[in-house]
Structures are given as C-alpha cells and as structure tokens.
C-alpha cells in the first residue's frame, strides 16, 4: 500500500485544492507494489551490491573490471559484437524492409508474416539449428563444396564467421520491423517529385529517403545493438569461450566462480551501456531532422 499512498500524498501536496481521494486509484496498487518489490528493489540492490564487499563500501569490483586489460578486452568484445551485428543487420535489413514496404496487397501480408514468424521461434532452437548448419558435414559446407567455392569441408563451428552469421540470423527481424513500419508511412510521391526535379537516384536516396527513414534506422539500430550487446545464448553456443563477452563473464561470475562483486560490477556496466543507448536514441529521435514520425 505504501507506494500508492505516497503517490497520492504527492498529488495532494501538489494540488491542495483537490481533496477528493479517488478510491479507484487503488486498482493500480497491486501491480505497482509488485513491480516495486519484485523489480525495482532487486535492481537497486544489485547496483548497491556492486559498491560493497565484505569490509563495507568499496570500488574493488570496478577496479578489477576497469583496471584489468583482460576485462577491458571483454567489454571491447561485447561492443564489437554488437557494432558488427548492428551494421550487418542494417546493411541487409534496409533494402529488405524497403522492398517489403513497397510491395502491396496479399504479398505484403505473406512476406511480412515470413519475416515475423522466425521471431516467435525460440532462440535456443534457432541457435541449435545454426550449430547443425555449421558442422563439417552441415549444409553450409555442403553448399560451399558443391558450388565449387572450396575443395574440402572446413571448420566453421567456434569461428567468428559462425558467430556473426548466427547473430545476424537471430536478430535481423528486430532491424527489419521498425524500418518497415517507418518506410510504410513514406509517401512514394516524394521520390517521384525528387526525380522530376532532376535528382539522380543516389541524390534522392541521400536527401529524401534516408532522412525520412532515419527514425526507423535509429529505432532498429538501438534495438539490435542493445539486445546483441547483452546476447548470451547465441555467442555461447556458436563460439563459446574463444570469444568471451560481458554476458559470459557475468554468468560465470555467478554460476561458476562465485565472484559476486565482479558479476555485479559487470552487470552495472552493462546497465549503464544500455541506459546510455536508450537515452541517446530518444535524444536523436527528438532532434530536428529525426523528428518526423
């Protein structure tokens, strides 16, 4: 009850004229109290834990993470993974979303469903499928050998190729869907207007299409970056310990080596990265040039 009462108290001090206590507001109380206790408190406690060790307040966890080239390298790995995945998803997703937005009628519904459906399939299942594809006797080697690109099957599992292939495979729809929803709104007559005013296709793309679809690029980019920087299942199965990421370190810190302060500090650093990203993207969308939703 405390949360709801606090809220009401704030309301009555802000507007002293309004005395009426609306009992109906109490319907929000169970959900708010639950989320306060089960979500806000644990996250705040985790942040607190990262500043505490056995002797009380300490920054030892952060000193360990940020002072050690090994852990700096791991943060770098996570950022690199997220950057490359986002860049490839954008490069492939942009034209695909464009085609999806320009097609009309029943085909659009069908193709949309085909992009959407893989999202609902479990990530563990998809990654399992990817590991089968990457085997020496798997379909990728089968295709490469039969198409004459390579002589003999090569090792693909646990390489960075399989990592990026898998990451893009799992997260590409998260780029296409936001792009599509923005591109669908774009008036195609604008492109004709640009062309009839003498602009070439490249010029039209850079001056009309790209600026107008920027909100989709920002939304998709933020989404793909933030989920791939925190990805755990896909990198774990496709490269394992050869390419350690922040997620692997956090999981290891809690599940294997039981260094809770290390895990908590890593978790807070990841939290800061995600928060910074969300703030940056909402700032970008609001600035003139991006604000055309």
């Amino acid at each position: 009850m405390t949360l709801a009462r606090d809220d009401l108290a704030v309301a009555s001090t802000a507007k002293p004229a309004r005395w009426s206590f609306d009992a109906k507001a109490l319907i929000a109380a169970p959900g708010l109290i639950f989320m306060g206790l089960a979500f806000a408190v644990p996250v705040l406690m985790l942040i607190g834990d990262s500043f505490v060790d056995r002797d009380g307040l300490s920054l030892a966890g952060y000193r360990k993470v940020l002072g050690d080239p090994y852990y700096i390298g791991i943060i770098g790995n996570s950022l690199q993974l997220a950057c490359i995945t986002t860049a490839v998803c954008l490069a492939v997703g942009y034209p695909a979303a464009w085609a999806l937005a320009r097609i009309r009628g029943v085909w659009q519904v069908i193709l949309f469903a085909l992009i959407f459906l893989p999202l609902t399939v479990s990530i563990v299942v998809k990654t399992f499928g990817l590991t089968i594809m990457m085997r020496r006797d798997g379909i990728i080697n089968f295709l490469l050998v039969n198409l004459g690109f390579i002589e003999r099957p090569m090792r693909l599992v646990f390489t960075e190729f399989s990592l990026y292939f898998g990451m893009v495979n799992v997260f590409l729809p998260f780029m296409i869907l936001p792009l599509y929803s923005v591109m669908r709104m774009l008036d195609p007559r604008l492109l004709d207007a640009s062309a009839s005013l003498g602009a070439g296709p490249v010029h039209t793309f850079l001056r009309v299409t790209l600026p107008l679809t920027m909100p989709g690029v920002i939304a998709g980019g933020t989404l793909v970056f933030s989920i791939s920087v925190a990805a755990y299942v896909t990198p774990g199965l496709l490269v394992g310990d050869r390419f350690m990421t922040m997620s692997q370190v956090m999981a290891k810190a809690y599940l294997n080596i039981r260094d809770f302060q290390l895990g908590a500090s890593m978790a807070v650093i990841m939290l800061v990265i995600s928060a910074a990203l969300i703030l940056a993207s909402s700032y970008l969308v609001r600035t003139p040039g991006g604000e055309r939703r």
Binding site: A96, A99, R102, L111, L114, I115, K126, F128, G129, N169
Partner: peptide, 24 residues
C-alpha cells in the same frame, strides 16, 4: 534496378531466416 535489388535482398533474407528452422 534498385527495386529489383531490394526484392532480391528480401527473398534472400527470408531464405536466410528460415534456414536454421528448416534444418531443425
């Protein structure tokens, strides 16, 4: 040419997305 290219990419993307699912 541009729209044809985009459609090709879309087709490729759908095949690519379904590969692991079909393999399973």
């Amino acid at each position: 040419f541009g729209s044809l290219f985009c459609r090709l990419v879309l087709g490729f993307v759908i095949v690519f997305l379904f590969l692991p699912i079909l393999i399973v």
